[in-house]
């Protein structure tokens, strides 16, 4: 059963928000730029499925549309063409510290973050000890989050995410900031998660981590899907191609 079904999806960049009233009044357009990061299509004709219990790793260069693809799957932005079908509840960790406030303590942020992820306050209270234990933050849990290192923030966010019930998880890079022991913990969690039928989509530049976490792979290049298959093949081909891309 496919949990995520992406079918012929295109996404453009248009409507440039940096234009103010003045530019609109005089009918100014954003100049057409050239270069590696400038193209009119963020994603072109992307199709793939992720079945329940599978884990998909997405590789590709910076600015190639990986994060855009995750946002589309999550549903915060809309595809221009094609369709995306989703089953169940999708959770995401796309950005460090999203849904947290630096002046609140870790404990307070667990509540805020948990509610944003759809947990009820009663549920959070009930799971609070378990969340704090999972994060291994110890006494730091009552310090304001601005005092946290990025690894500590990732620990906190991930612990909350791991205690919310999602049928699919989208993870963008974030876990790379954690230390070795935390990464091991995450991997173990994800193995359990997919074994129990959870679906996982991971974007990462750490090719080692992505091979540890994922079974399937998908390679994006300049908005196009180059290849999909077993993650080890994808990573191998991606590595071999790198020399050509920059010439």
């Amino acid at each position: 059963m496919s949990m995520i079904d992406v079918n012929g999806v295109w996404k453009t960049y248009r409507n440039h928000p940096q234009l103010g009233i003045k530019e609109r009044l005089v009918g100014k357009r954003v100049p057409v730029e050239e270069g590696r990061f400038a193209r009119s299509w963020a994603l072109r004709d992307i199709s793939f499925q992720v079945d329940a219990g599978r884990s998909l790793g997405i590789v590709g260069h910076n600015g190639t549309g990986k994060s855009t693809l995750l946002s589309l799957i999550l549903g915060t932005i809309k595809e221009d063409r094609g369709t995306i079908k989703r089953k169940g509840r999708i959770g995401a960790m796309l950005e460090l510290g999203s849904g947290c406030h630096p002046d609140l303590t870790g404990r307070e942020n667990i509540f805020l973050n948990g509610a944003i992820l759809g947990l009820r306050i009663a549920e959070i209270k009930q799971k609070l000890d378990s969340i704090i234990a999972f994060s291994e933050l110890g006494a730091a849990i009552d310090l304001p989050m601005r005092t946290y290192s990025s690894g500590m923030s990732a620990r906190l966010s991930f612990s909350v995410l791991a205690h919310a019930h999602h049928d699919a998880l989208l993870i963008d890079e974030i876990l790379a900031v954690g230390d070795a022991s935390f990464q091991t913990k995450c991997s173990a969690y994800f193995r359990d998660y997919t074994a129990q039928g959870g679906t996982l989509v991971v974007v990462s530049h750490s090719l080692q981590a992505i091979q540890d976490l994922c079974v399937d792979g998908l390679w994006l290049h300049e908005g196009k899907l180059v290849q999909q298959g077993p993650i080890s093949n994808i990573v191998k081909n991606y590595l071999n191609s790198r020399d050509d891309v920059f010439t």
Binding site: S71, L74, G75, T76, I77, I90, A92, L94, E95, G97, S98, G99, I116, L117
Partner: peptide, 9 residues
């Protein structure tokens, strides 16, 4: 921004 773009809310 992060609440608008990074979570479904």
């Amino acid at each position: 921004l992060s609440l608008v773009r990074r979570v479904t809310l």
